[in-house]
Nucleic acid binder design. Structure first.
Lengths: 228, 228
DNA sequence: TTAATTATATGATTTTTATCACATTTTTAA
DNA sequence: TTAAAAATGTGATAAAAATCATATAATTAA
Protein backbone atom coordinates (compact mmCIF):
# COMPACT_ATOMS: atom_id res chain seq x y z
CA UNK A 1 0.00 0.00 0.00
CA UNK A 2 1.48 3.33 -1.10
CA UNK A 3 1.88 6.16 1.39
CA UNK A 4 0.04 9.49 1.20
CA UNK A 5 3.07 11.42 2.41
CA UNK A 6 5.02 10.13 -0.58
CA UNK A 7 2.18 10.40 -3.09
CA UNK A 8 2.73 13.02 -5.74
CA UNK A 9 -0.96 13.24 -6.63
CA UNK A 10 -1.81 15.25 -3.52
CA UNK A 11 0.21 18.17 -4.92
CA UNK A 12 -2.63 18.69 -7.41
CA UNK A 13 -5.37 19.23 -4.85
CA UNK A 14 -6.14 20.64 -1.41
CA UNK A 15 -4.49 17.69 0.31
CA UNK A 16 -1.15 19.40 -0.30
CA UNK A 17 -1.95 21.63 2.66
CA UNK A 18 -1.94 18.75 5.13
CA UNK A 19 0.96 18.37 7.54
CA UNK A 20 3.23 15.36 7.60
CA UNK A 21 1.46 13.93 10.67
CA UNK A 22 -1.94 14.43 9.09
CA UNK A 23 -0.74 12.61 5.98
CA UNK A 24 0.65 9.72 7.95
CA UNK A 25 -2.62 9.35 9.80
CA UNK A 26 -4.48 9.54 6.48
CA UNK A 27 -2.20 6.89 5.00
CA UNK A 28 -3.16 4.53 7.79
CA UNK A 29 -6.88 4.76 7.20
CA UNK A 30 -7.12 5.23 3.44
CA UNK A 31 -7.77 2.37 1.04
CA UNK A 32 -6.90 2.01 -2.64
CA UNK A 33 -9.34 0.77 -5.26
CA UNK A 34 -9.27 -0.21 -8.89
CA UNK A 35 -12.42 0.74 -10.76
CA UNK A 36 -12.96 -0.82 -14.18
CA UNK A 37 -14.21 1.17 -17.14
CA UNK A 38 -17.98 1.50 -16.96
CA UNK A 39 -18.20 0.74 -13.25
CA UNK A 40 -19.71 3.25 -10.81
CA UNK A 41 -17.71 4.90 -8.03
CA UNK A 42 -20.92 5.98 -6.36
CA UNK A 43 -24.53 6.43 -7.33
CA UNK A 44 -27.18 9.12 -6.99
CA UNK A 45 -28.75 9.09 -3.56
CA UNK A 46 -25.84 7.20 -2.02
CA UNK A 47 -24.52 8.48 1.30
CA UNK A 48 -20.77 8.80 0.86
CA UNK A 49 -18.57 7.58 3.68
CA UNK A 50 -15.53 9.50 2.56
CA UNK A 51 -13.84 11.29 -0.31
CA UNK A 52 -12.04 9.87 -3.31
CA UNK A 53 -8.67 11.06 -4.54
CA UNK A 54 -8.19 10.16 -8.20
CA UNK A 55 -4.75 8.66 -8.80
CA UNK A 56 -5.38 7.68 -12.39
CA UNK A 57 -8.15 7.56 -14.97
CA UNK A 58 -11.21 9.66 -15.77
CA UNK A 59 -14.82 9.44 -14.65
CA UNK A 60 -18.00 11.22 -15.63
CA UNK A 61 -20.11 12.81 -12.91
CA UNK A 62 -23.74 13.03 -13.91
CA UNK A 63 -27.28 13.50 -12.73
CA UNK A 64 -30.62 12.24 -14.01
CA UNK A 65 -33.15 14.91 -14.89
CA UNK A 66 -36.84 14.52 -14.07
CA UNK A 67 -37.32 13.97 -17.81
CA UNK A 68 -35.30 10.78 -17.52
CA UNK A 69 -32.32 12.18 -19.39
CA UNK A 70 -28.81 12.09 -18.11
CA UNK A 71 -26.75 15.25 -17.76
CA UNK A 72 -23.00 15.07 -17.30
CA UNK A 73 -21.97 17.80 -14.86
CA UNK A 74 -18.23 17.29 -14.94
CA UNK A 75 -15.36 15.02 -15.87
CA UNK A 76 -13.12 14.23 -12.93
CA UNK A 77 -9.59 13.14 -13.54
CA UNK A 78 -6.13 12.40 -12.11
CA UNK A 79 -5.34 14.70 -9.21
CA UNK A 80 -8.94 15.70 -8.51
CA UNK A 81 -10.85 15.12 -5.31
CA UNK A 82 -14.34 13.68 -5.57
CA UNK A 83 -17.15 13.67 -3.05
CA UNK A 84 -16.09 16.47 -0.67
CA UNK A 85 -19.32 18.34 -1.26
CA UNK A 86 -21.82 15.78 -0.14
CA UNK A 87 -19.50 15.02 2.76
CA UNK A 88 -19.47 18.65 3.84
CA UNK A 89 -23.18 19.21 3.38
CA UNK A 90 -23.77 15.85 5.07
CA UNK A 91 -26.39 14.81 2.54
CA UNK A 92 -26.69 11.90 0.13
CA UNK A 93 -24.92 12.58 -3.15
CA UNK A 94 -27.06 14.17 -5.83
CA UNK A 95 -24.65 12.88 -8.43
CA UNK A 96 -23.44 9.63 -9.92
CA UNK A 97 -19.82 8.93 -10.89
CA UNK A 98 -18.92 6.32 -13.52
CA UNK A 99 -15.46 5.43 -14.77
CA UNK A 100 -14.78 6.27 -18.42
CA UNK A 101 -11.61 4.19 -18.33
CA UNK A 102 -9.91 1.94 -15.80
CA UNK A 103 -9.20 3.97 -12.70
CA UNK A 104 -7.03 3.93 -9.64
CA UNK A 105 -8.50 5.83 -6.72
CA UNK A 106 -7.88 6.24 -3.01
CA UNK A 107 -10.71 6.34 -0.52
CA UNK A 108 -10.28 8.51 2.57
CA UNK A 109 -12.84 8.00 5.35
CA UNK A 110 -15.12 10.86 6.27
CA UNK A 111 -13.95 11.23 9.90
CA UNK A 112 -10.37 11.74 8.82
CA UNK A 113 -11.19 14.46 6.29
CA UNK A 114 -13.65 16.23 8.58
CA UNK A 115 -11.10 16.30 11.40
CA UNK A 116 -8.51 17.86 9.11
CA UNK A 117 -11.04 20.36 7.78
CA UNK A 118 -11.79 21.56 11.29
CA UNK A 119 -8.25 21.54 12.61
CA UNK A 120 -6.23 22.76 9.65
CA UNK A 121 -7.29 26.24 8.48
CA UNK A 122 -5.02 26.25 5.48
CA UNK A 123 -6.60 22.98 4.32
CA UNK A 124 -10.15 24.20 4.84
CA UNK A 125 -9.30 27.51 3.19
CA UNK A 126 -7.98 25.64 0.19
CA UNK A 127 -11.16 23.55 -0.05
CA UNK A 128 -13.14 26.76 0.28
CA UNK A 129 -11.19 28.37 -2.55
CA UNK A 130 -11.68 25.31 -4.67
CA UNK A 131 -15.41 25.36 -4.11
CA UNK A 132 -15.60 29.07 -4.91
CA UNK A 133 -13.85 28.33 -8.18
CA UNK A 134 -16.16 25.43 -8.98
CA UNK A 135 -19.15 27.60 -8.19
CA UNK A 136 -17.91 30.29 -10.53
CA UNK A 137 -17.55 27.81 -13.33
CA UNK A 138 -20.98 26.36 -12.52
CA UNK A 139 -22.40 29.86 -13.02
CA UNK A 140 -20.75 29.99 -16.41
CA UNK A 141 -22.21 26.64 -17.36
CA UNK A 142 -25.67 27.81 -16.32
CA UNK A 143 -25.35 30.89 -18.53
CA UNK A 144 -24.10 28.81 -21.45
CA UNK A 145 -26.85 26.23 -21.10
CA UNK A 146 -29.49 28.92 -20.86
CA UNK A 147 -28.29 31.26 -23.55
CA UNK A 148 -26.15 29.45 -26.09
CA UNK A 149 -27.22 27.28 -28.98
CA UNK A 150 -26.36 23.60 -29.12
CA UNK A 151 -23.79 24.37 -31.81
CA UNK A 152 -22.07 26.92 -29.58
CA UNK A 153 -22.09 24.54 -26.64
CA UNK A 154 -20.59 21.75 -28.71
CA UNK A 155 -17.80 24.04 -29.91
CA UNK A 156 -17.16 25.22 -26.37
CA UNK A 157 -17.17 21.65 -25.03
CA UNK A 158 -14.57 20.55 -27.58
CA UNK A 159 -12.38 23.50 -26.62
CA UNK A 160 -12.77 22.72 -22.93
CA UNK A 161 -11.97 19.05 -23.46
CA UNK A 162 -8.80 19.88 -25.36
CA UNK A 163 -7.60 22.32 -22.72
CA UNK A 164 -8.42 19.94 -19.86
CA UNK A 165 -7.09 16.71 -21.34
CA UNK A 166 -4.57 17.93 -23.90
CA UNK A 167 -3.78 16.08 -27.10
CA UNK A 168 -2.05 12.81 -27.88
CA UNK A 169 0.63 12.04 -30.49
CA UNK A 170 -1.97 12.32 -33.29
CA UNK A 171 -3.16 15.72 -32.03
CA UNK A 172 -6.40 14.11 -30.91
CA UNK A 173 -8.06 15.15 -27.67
CA UNK A 174 -6.77 12.91 -24.92
CA UNK A 175 -10.06 11.46 -23.73
CA UNK A 176 -12.47 8.99 -25.28
CA UNK A 177 -16.11 9.92 -25.07
CA UNK A 178 -19.03 8.28 -26.83
CA UNK A 179 -21.27 10.51 -28.93
CA UNK A 180 -23.91 9.97 -26.26
CA UNK A 181 -21.54 11.24 -23.55
CA UNK A 182 -20.77 14.31 -25.62
CA UNK A 183 -24.49 14.90 -26.09
CA UNK A 184 -24.99 14.51 -22.35
CA UNK A 185 -22.33 17.11 -21.63
CA UNK A 186 -23.81 19.73 -23.91
CA UNK A 187 -27.37 18.79 -23.04
CA UNK A 188 -28.83 17.72 -26.35
CA UNK A 189 -30.06 14.65 -28.20
CA UNK A 190 -27.38 12.21 -29.32
CA UNK A 191 -28.46 12.59 -32.95
CA UNK A 192 -28.08 16.35 -32.75
CA UNK A 193 -24.57 16.04 -31.35
CA UNK A 194 -23.63 13.57 -34.09
CA UNK A 195 -25.05 15.82 -36.79
CA UNK A 196 -23.21 18.88 -35.54
CA UNK A 197 -19.96 16.94 -35.21
CA UNK A 198 -20.37 15.80 -38.82
CA UNK A 199 -20.97 19.43 -39.86
CA UNK A 200 -17.77 20.56 -38.15
CA UNK A 201 -15.91 17.72 -39.85
CA UNK A 202 -17.32 18.63 -43.26
CA UNK A 203 -16.16 22.21 -42.72
CA UNK A 204 -12.69 20.91 -41.76
CA UNK A 205 -12.88 22.57 -38.35
CA UNK A 206 -12.42 19.25 -36.61
CA UNK A 207 -11.46 15.75 -37.71
CA UNK A 208 -12.35 12.46 -36.09
CA UNK A 209 -12.13 8.75 -36.45
CA UNK A 210 -14.37 7.03 -33.95
CA UNK A 211 -13.74 8.54 -30.56
CA UNK A 212 -10.47 10.19 -31.56
CA UNK A 213 -11.39 13.80 -32.15
CA UNK A 214 -8.97 16.53 -33.12
CA UNK A 215 -9.41 20.24 -33.50
CA UNK A 216 -8.01 21.42 -36.82
CA UNK A 217 -9.12 25.03 -36.96
CA UNK A 218 -9.00 26.29 -33.38
CA UNK A 219 -9.72 29.86 -34.36
CA UNK A 220 -12.87 29.00 -36.25
CA UNK A 221 -14.07 26.76 -33.42
CA UNK A 222 -13.61 29.60 -30.94
CA UNK A 223 -15.63 31.85 -33.20
CA UNK A 224 -18.44 29.31 -33.33
CA UNK A 225 -18.40 29.01 -29.55
CA UNK A 226 -18.85 32.76 -29.36
CA UNK A 227 -21.78 32.67 -31.75
CA UNK A 228 -20.40 33.56 -35.18
CA UNK B 1 -25.36 52.98 13.40
CA UNK B 2 -26.86 49.63 14.44
CA UNK B 3 -24.68 47.03 16.07
CA UNK B 4 -23.90 43.61 14.58
CA UNK B 5 -24.07 41.91 17.96
CA UNK B 6 -27.66 43.07 18.29
CA UNK B 7 -28.65 42.52 14.68
CA UNK B 8 -31.15 39.75 14.20
CA UNK B 9 -30.32 39.30 10.51
CA UNK B 10 -27.08 37.47 11.25
CA UNK B 11 -29.09 34.55 12.63
CA UNK B 12 -30.06 33.75 9.04
CA UNK B 13 -26.54 33.26 7.73
CA UNK B 14 -23.07 32.07 8.62
CA UNK B 15 -22.36 35.19 10.67
CA UNK B 16 -24.30 33.58 13.51
CA UNK B 17 -21.21 31.52 14.24
CA UNK B 18 -19.13 34.55 15.15
CA UNK B 19 -18.26 35.21 18.77
CA UNK B 20 -19.33 38.31 20.62
CA UNK B 21 -15.87 39.87 20.28
CA UNK B 22 -15.76 39.13 16.58
CA UNK B 23 -19.14 40.79 16.16
CA UNK B 24 -18.11 43.88 18.11
CA UNK B 25 -15.02 44.22 15.94
CA UNK B 26 -17.16 43.76 12.84
CA UNK B 27 -19.60 46.37 14.05
CA UNK B 28 -16.78 48.88 14.27
CA UNK B 29 -15.67 48.43 10.67
CA UNK B 30 -18.90 47.72 8.86
CA UNK B 31 -20.89 50.39 7.03
CA UNK B 32 -24.59 50.52 6.18
CA UNK B 33 -25.91 51.47 2.78
CA UNK B 34 -29.24 52.21 1.20
CA UNK B 35 -29.50 50.98 -2.38
CA UNK B 36 -32.39 52.29 -4.46
CA UNK B 37 -34.42 50.06 -6.76
CA UNK B 38 -32.59 49.58 -10.04
CA UNK B 39 -29.19 50.59 -8.66
CA UNK B 40 -26.24 48.18 -8.78
CA UNK B 41 -24.55 46.81 -5.67
CA UNK B 42 -21.61 45.70 -7.75
CA UNK B 43 -20.88 45.04 -11.39
CA UNK B 44 -19.30 42.25 -13.43
CA UNK B 45 -15.54 42.47 -13.35
CA UNK B 46 -15.50 44.57 -10.20
CA UNK B 47 -13.07 43.58 -7.48
CA UNK B 48 -15.09 43.39 -4.27
CA UNK B 49 -13.57 44.89 -1.16
CA UNK B 50 -15.83 43.03 1.22
CA UNK B 51 -19.08 41.13 1.59
CA UNK B 52 -22.62 42.40 1.80
CA UNK B 53 -25.15 41.29 4.38
CA UNK B 54 -28.68 41.98 3.15
CA UNK B 55 -30.79 43.58 5.88
CA UNK B 56 -33.78 44.26 3.68
CA UNK B 57 -34.88 44.06 0.06
CA UNK B 58 -34.16 41.81 -2.90
CA UNK B 59 -31.58 41.96 -5.66
CA UNK B 60 -30.99 39.98 -8.82
CA UNK B 61 -27.56 38.48 -9.44
CA UNK B 62 -26.87 38.06 -13.11
CA UNK B 63 -24.23 37.52 -15.74
CA UNK B 64 -23.96 38.56 -19.37
CA UNK B 65 -23.54 35.72 -21.86
CA UNK B 66 -21.20 36.02 -24.82
CA UNK B 67 -24.36 36.28 -26.92
CA UNK B 68 -25.12 39.57 -25.20
CA UNK B 69 -28.06 38.19 -23.25
CA UNK B 70 -28.45 38.52 -19.55
CA UNK B 71 -28.91 35.47 -17.33
CA UNK B 72 -30.16 35.82 -13.78
CA UNK B 73 -28.30 33.31 -11.62
CA UNK B 74 -30.03 33.97 -8.33
CA UNK B 75 -32.20 36.28 -6.31
CA UNK B 76 -30.60 37.36 -3.07
CA UNK B 77 -32.73 38.58 -0.23
CA UNK B 78 -32.99 39.56 3.44
CA UNK B 79 -30.65 37.49 5.56
CA UNK B 80 -28.41 36.38 2.71
CA UNK B 81 -24.71 37.09 2.35
CA UNK B 82 -23.47 38.36 -0.99
CA UNK B 83 -19.98 38.42 -2.42
CA UNK B 84 -18.19 35.84 -0.24
CA UNK B 85 -17.23 33.80 -3.28
CA UNK B 86 -15.22 36.33 -5.20
CA UNK B 87 -13.68 37.38 -1.91
CA UNK B 88 -12.58 33.84 -1.16
CA UNK B 89 -11.33 33.10 -4.65
CA UNK B 90 -9.70 36.53 -4.67
CA UNK B 91 -10.86 37.27 -8.19
CA UNK B 92 -13.02 39.98 -9.71
CA UNK B 93 -16.71 39.18 -9.51
CA UNK B 94 -18.10 37.32 -12.49
CA UNK B 95 -21.55 38.52 -11.53
CA UNK B 96 -23.53 41.72 -11.32
CA UNK B 97 -26.03 42.51 -8.55
CA UNK B 98 -28.89 44.97 -9.06
CA UNK B 99 -31.56 45.92 -6.55
CA UNK B 100 -35.11 44.88 -7.48
CA UNK B 101 -36.50 47.08 -4.73
CA UNK B 102 -35.07 49.56 -2.25
CA UNK B 103 -32.52 47.77 -0.12
CA UNK B 104 -30.73 48.12 3.15
CA UNK B 105 -27.38 46.37 3.23
CA UNK B 106 -24.31 46.22 5.43
CA UNK B 107 -20.83 46.17 3.98
CA UNK B 108 -18.16 44.24 5.86
CA UNK B 109 -14.55 44.83 4.74
CA UNK B 110 -12.61 41.93 3.29
CA UNK B 111 -9.86 41.88 5.94
CA UNK B 112 -12.39 41.45 8.72
CA UNK B 113 -14.18 38.54 7.05
CA UNK B 114 -10.98 36.81 5.96
CA UNK B 115 -9.56 37.05 9.48
CA UNK B 116 -12.71 35.45 10.91
CA UNK B 117 -12.67 32.76 8.21
CA UNK B 118 -9.15 31.77 9.15
CA UNK B 119 -9.52 32.03 12.91
CA UNK B 120 -13.01 30.69 13.52
CA UNK B 121 -13.44 27.09 12.28
CA UNK B 122 -17.13 26.98 13.02
CA UNK B 123 -17.62 30.08 10.87
CA UNK B 124 -15.54 28.77 7.99
CA UNK B 125 -17.27 25.39 8.26
CA UNK B 126 -20.61 27.10 8.00
CA UNK B 127 -19.51 29.05 4.91
CA UNK B 128 -18.21 25.78 3.49
CA UNK B 129 -21.55 24.07 4.11
CA UNK B 130 -23.36 26.94 2.56
CA UNK B 131 -21.23 26.77 -0.55
CA UNK B 132 -21.70 23.02 -0.81
CA UNK B 133 -25.43 23.61 -0.72
CA UNK B 134 -25.26 26.35 -3.34
CA UNK B 135 -23.15 24.10 -5.53
CA UNK B 136 -25.67 21.33 -5.27
CA UNK B 137 -28.46 23.63 -6.32
CA UNK B 138 -26.28 24.98 -9.14
CA UNK B 139 -25.97 21.40 -10.39
CA UNK B 140 -29.73 21.10 -10.38
CA UNK B 141 -30.08 24.33 -12.34
CA UNK B 142 -27.57 23.08 -14.92
CA UNK B 143 -29.57 19.89 -15.38
CA UNK B 144 -32.82 21.81 -15.68
CA UNK B 145 -31.41 24.30 -18.15
CA UNK B 146 -29.92 21.53 -20.24
CA UNK B 147 -32.77 19.07 -20.19
CA UNK B 148 -36.07 20.79 -19.51
CA UNK B 149 -38.26 22.74 -21.89
CA UNK B 150 -38.93 26.44 -21.42
CA UNK B 151 -42.44 25.59 -20.24
CA UNK B 152 -41.09 23.26 -17.55
CA UNK B 153 -38.54 25.82 -16.44
CA UNK B 154 -41.18 28.53 -16.17
CA UNK B 155 -43.39 26.29 -14.03
CA UNK B 156 -40.45 25.37 -11.85
CA UNK B 157 -39.39 28.99 -11.49
CA UNK B 158 -42.86 30.03 -10.36
CA UNK B 159 -42.85 27.24 -7.77
CA UNK B 160 -39.39 28.25 -6.57
CA UNK B 161 -40.37 31.90 -6.31
CA UNK B 162 -43.43 31.09 -4.24
CA UNK B 163 -41.48 28.88 -1.87
CA UNK B 164 -38.64 31.40 -1.50
CA UNK B 165 -40.70 34.59 -1.16
CA UNK B 166 -44.05 33.31 0.06
CA UNK B 167 -47.36 34.98 -0.74
CA UNK B 168 -48.95 38.26 0.28
CA UNK B 169 -52.50 38.98 1.47
CA UNK B 170 -53.84 38.40 -2.08
CA UNK B 171 -52.06 35.04 -2.36
CA UNK B 172 -49.70 36.59 -4.89
CA UNK B 173 -46.01 35.69 -4.88
CA UNK B 174 -44.21 38.17 -2.68
CA UNK B 175 -41.73 39.54 -5.21
CA UNK B 176 -42.18 41.81 -8.20
CA UNK B 177 -40.34 40.75 -11.33
CA UNK B 178 -40.69 42.13 -14.82
CA UNK B 179 -41.50 39.70 -17.61
CA UNK B 180 -37.98 40.29 -18.84
CA UNK B 181 -36.54 39.30 -15.45
CA UNK B 182 -38.63 36.14 -15.47
CA UNK B 183 -37.39 35.37 -18.98
CA UNK B 184 -33.83 35.97 -17.83
CA UNK B 185 -34.25 33.54 -14.94
CA UNK B 186 -35.56 30.72 -17.11
CA UNK B 187 -33.24 31.56 -19.99
CA UNK B 188 -35.61 32.35 -22.80
CA UNK B 189 -36.84 35.26 -24.90
CA UNK B 190 -39.11 37.74 -23.14
CA UNK B 191 -41.88 37.10 -25.67
CA UNK B 192 -41.73 33.37 -25.01
CA UNK B 193 -42.03 33.90 -21.27
CA UNK B 194 -45.00 36.23 -21.77
CA UNK B 195 -46.70 33.77 -24.09
CA UNK B 196 -46.28 30.86 -21.70
CA UNK B 197 -47.49 32.94 -18.76
CA UNK B 198 -50.60 33.82 -20.78
CA UNK B 199 -51.13 30.12 -21.53
CA UNK B 200 -50.94 29.24 -17.84
CA UNK B 201 -53.40 32.04 -17.09
CA UNK B 202 -55.81 30.85 -19.79
CA UNK B 203 -55.69 27.36 -18.29
CA UNK B 204 -56.39 28.84 -14.83
CA UNK B 205 -53.19 27.41 -13.41
CA UNK B 206 -51.96 30.85 -12.44
CA UNK B 207 -53.51 34.31 -12.28
CA UNK B 208 -51.78 37.66 -12.58
CA UNK B 209 -52.36 41.34 -12.79
CA UNK B 210 -49.20 43.14 -13.81
CA UNK B 211 -46.37 41.86 -11.66
CA UNK B 212 -48.65 40.29 -9.06
CA UNK B 213 -48.63 36.61 -9.92
CA UNK B 214 -50.45 33.92 -7.99
CA UNK B 215 -50.46 30.19 -8.33
CA UNK B 216 -54.01 28.85 -8.46
CA UNK B 217 -53.50 25.20 -9.28
CA UNK B 218 -50.30 24.18 -7.52
CA UNK B 219 -50.72 20.53 -8.36
CA UNK B 220 -51.06 21.13 -12.06
CA UNK B 221 -48.07 23.51 -12.06
CA UNK B 222 -45.95 20.85 -10.38
CA UNK B 223 -46.98 18.36 -13.04
CA UNK B 224 -45.97 20.79 -15.78
CA UNK B 225 -42.60 21.33 -14.09
CA UNK B 226 -42.09 17.57 -14.19
CA UNK B 227 -42.93 17.38 -17.85
CA UNK B 228 -46.59 16.38 -18.11
C1' DT C 1 -15.47 -16.51 -35.80
C1' DT C 2 -19.84 -15.13 -35.93
C1' DA C 3 -24.19 -13.57 -34.31
C1' DA C 4 -26.01 -10.15 -31.38
C1' DT C 5 -25.74 -5.90 -29.46
C1' DT C 6 -24.49 -1.32 -29.30
C1' DA C 7 -22.83 2.93 -31.38
C1' DT C 8 -22.72 5.96 -35.17
C1' DA C 9 -24.83 8.15 -39.04
C1' DT C 10 -28.33 10.45 -41.79
C1' DG C 11 -33.02 11.58 -43.77
C1' DA C 12 -37.74 13.13 -42.95
C1' DT C 13 -40.80 15.27 -40.01
C1' DT C 14 -42.62 17.56 -35.95
C1' DT C 15 -42.12 20.35 -32.06
C1' DT C 16 -40.13 23.97 -29.68
C1' DT C 17 -38.35 28.35 -29.44
C1' DA C 18 -36.55 32.76 -31.30
C1' DT C 19 -37.20 36.62 -34.04
C1' DC C 20 -39.56 40.36 -36.14
C1' DA C 21 -43.39 43.35 -36.40
C1' DC C 22 -46.60 45.96 -34.34
C1' DA C 23 -50.49 47.22 -31.02
C1' DT C 24 -51.70 48.37 -26.44
C1' DT C 25 -50.92 49.36 -21.74
C1' DT C 26 -48.24 51.10 -18.00
C1' DT C 27 -44.71 53.83 -16.08
C1' DT C 28 -41.65 57.69 -15.97
C1' DA C 29 -40.07 62.13 -16.29
C1' DA C 30 -40.40 66.81 -18.05
C1' DT D 1 -50.79 66.64 -16.79
C1' DT D 2 -49.02 65.00 -20.62
C1' DA D 3 -45.70 63.38 -23.87
C1' DA D 4 -42.15 60.01 -24.15
C1' DA D 5 -40.34 55.82 -22.94
C1' DA D 6 -40.65 51.32 -21.37
C1' DA D 7 -43.19 47.12 -20.57
C1' DT D 8 -46.60 43.90 -21.95
C1' DG D 9 -49.09 41.29 -25.29
C1' DT D 10 -49.96 38.79 -29.66
C1' DG D 11 -49.60 37.28 -34.54
C1' DA D 12 -46.70 35.59 -38.32
C1' DT D 13 -42.69 33.50 -39.60
C1' DA D 14 -38.07 31.57 -39.32
C1' DA D 15 -34.71 28.96 -37.05
C1' DA D 16 -33.21 25.49 -33.93
C1' DA D 17 -33.61 21.20 -32.04
C1' DA D 18 -36.07 16.81 -30.94
C1' DT D 19 -38.07 12.78 -32.49
C1' DC D 20 -38.78 8.88 -35.33
C1' DA D 21 -37.17 5.78 -38.74
C1' DT D 22 -33.77 3.20 -40.62
C1' DA D 23 -29.08 1.99 -42.38
C1' DT D 24 -24.42 0.89 -41.48
C1' DA D 25 -20.32 0.32 -38.72
C1' DA D 26 -18.08 -1.13 -34.62
C1' DT D 27 -17.85 -3.74 -30.53
C1' DT D 28 -18.91 -7.52 -27.53
C1' DA D 29 -19.94 -11.96 -26.02
C1' DA D 30 -21.09 -16.74 -26.96
Amino acid sequence: MSKCEQCIIRQFNSLKHLSREELVRMSNCKTSKIIKKGEPIFDEGERLKGVFCIKDGVCKVSKMSENGRNQIISLVTKGDLLGERSLISDEPSNLKAIALEDMEICFIPKEEIMKDLEKNPSFSMSVLKDMAKTLKSADNVIVDMAQKTVKQRLAETLLNLESKFGTNENDAINVHLSREDIANIIGTATESAIRLLSDLKKKKIIAFKGKEISIINLNELEKIAQGF
